[in-house]
Design a protein around this nucleic acid. Sequence first.
DNA 1: CGCCCTCATGAGATCGATCTCATCGATCGT
DNA 2: ACGATCGATGAGATCGATCTCATGAGGGCG
Lengths: 347, 347
Amino acid sequence: MADLLSVAKLAGVSRATAARAFSSPELVRPETRHKVLEAAHRLAFRPNNVARQLRAQTTKMIGVMVPSLDNPVFAEQLQAMEVAARASGYSLIVTTSEYDASRESEIVEEMLRQRVDGLVLTIADADRSEVLAKLHREVCPYLLVYNQPEAADIPTIGVDNRAAVAEATRHLIALGHHRIGMVAGSLLQSDRARLRYEGYRQAMCDHGLTPRPLIEMPRHTQAELACLEPELSGHDGLTAVICTNDLLAISLIGELQRSGRSVPGDLSVMGFDGINLGHCLYPSLSTVEQPRVEIGRSAVQILLAMIRGETPQPLPLPHALREGESVGAPPTSRQVLVTRNPQRNTP
Amino acid sequence: MADLLSVAKLAGVSRATAARAFSSPELVRPETRHKVLEAAHRLAFRPNNVARQLRAQTTKMIGVMVPSLDNPVFAEQLQAMEVAARASGYSLIVTTSEYDASRESEIVEEMLRQRVDGLVLTIADADRSEVLAKLHREVCPYLLVYNQPEAADIPTIGVDNRAAVAEATRHLIALGHHRIGMVAGSLLQSDRARLRYEGYRQAMCDHGLTPRPLIEMPRHTQAELACLEPELSGHDGLTAVICTNDLLAISLIGELQRSGRSVPGDLSVMGFDGINLGHCLYPSLSTVEQPRVEIGRSAVQILLAMIRGETPQPLPLPHALREGESVGAPPTSRQVLVTRNPQRNTP
DNA sequence: CGCCCTCATGAGATCGATCTCATCGATCGT
DNA sequence: ACGATCGATGAGATCGATCTCATGAGGGCG
């Protein structure tokens, strides 16, 4: 590949002038510029970004780490980030951590070596993370996404998970549900999971209802009906569940239907995330929507501001309760049973 | 950030030795190495990959361009690529083209400037693409994914779209369907779309059935029932449709159910891609599965081989007909109508 | 007419690591 | 004991573009 020097020679100018013809054309006489571009064309020259980055001490690259791309909530956010970054002349280096702490650490280390201008991370648990400790000592701007650390000085963007699930729970209660469960994937060691359960617990208690223990599924994004079945029957069987993510909710609905149950007839199911696909299903998914596109777009904007040396205040973004067809009133046959329940809430 | 020279000074060795302590530790006496690492630690030194890349003339980066990450078929492939690349010490620069030809061109140009070691691309239409023309003149190894160009000399990995849809069509025919339609998104200008329709047409003709015109939806991944409705009623109404992607199929099933129809009772629906979510739904999605993980993994392996200077022969990967619950026998009430149909195929 | 300023360009240093080649002491073989 | 070999290290060039500073031509103005 031809370099600037050979282009400069062919055009009969110095390296400096040839460089200017590309990076700041206004400094070069149009005639000269044309000679340079012509020479560049003849030699199939293409500026070498690596050299530019080394000299300029900036890569125009953002390092992104998400747990997995198999979950659309991350893919959709990443899509938005890519568009926003490209619009500002930045590229994304994308990595997946699989929620693995040691991998998180390696990935961030590698990206720092790559001299990315900033990092956008979604980590497993923002409250106990080696990655954050490392970044704390570094100068590289970074931003967490979807996480919700307890420490206030960690720049983060995402929704208020506790409030969001609390609202979802109240929504179900308002529809007449009393026996509401919460279904989670296999990864309980996350700041979000803790806060979501806490939101559920709080809302239940506030209404004089008994929160149930978390129902844990063996996989993170696919429900096993067998794990839930014991909770469904009997006089205190659940009439509604909140799932910690949409994939879990969707697969749970599928399993319930396959077992001959009706959603929301026999069980109301609420998701969390608001992935696009939820709209399209029948029954459509009731869910707590995280504004994935807005989150992705803002993440890039805020990070770029940090890179420019500003100190923007990342606001928590609003969640939205999106009502779909997977949630309805509790079954009436069951509602009779409610009266046998300790909590005697008038129907 | 400290550089190698300051580390070398602190450790009392030359720059060369300090560099060796990192990149080829076996060449350095253990005692010396420890001194260097100790000094590096004290100075919070981190090797600068940009400088290394410039000197070594290799970035260990792969440029990836997919149409969109909102479709899990790409996200799932990308997930597999990321894992495979990382395992071989490579990073991914990820971009999305939105099927926009000019964007495709810009993106590839930018990645070439970035001196990626290779490119993995999914382009809109491999048979008329400026990008391919450009790459043809370049030395950068590249590989198409999911595309199926007519030209034989373009390295590509993916399934045989024509054969895949033909097989799906035959499957429906074998179940007794005669009036089968094909539903596509709004982007017909793609090599895959053409071949998929061609496979459908061929299979229909081979069985003496009349292929229908493509039913085009206004959006690429979401079905509008109104576009399909005219084809459903009447004495020659469809009993089965093949959708060009799973998202289209899934949303179509949702719309059909919402309108009170049963799938597959009233209409059998078959998808294409095999995204993970299809398994979980009820009815589960019958689809032509593209081995997305295998495709992603192989794409990286083959590209790395090309980077090493080998000339691997990318084989077309096998598709698989995945039978789900969204396809069944045609409704019997309709089957009576079949006899009024021009094609008289005995049941 | 001469001074100063602007504009276009060139020379040379620089970003940070790596590669080649040279050097020097120690070990080995006969 | 002496030349050969090996292992560890250092000096200096190099990757390709950009930045700073210097230079020189040309124009405006007193």
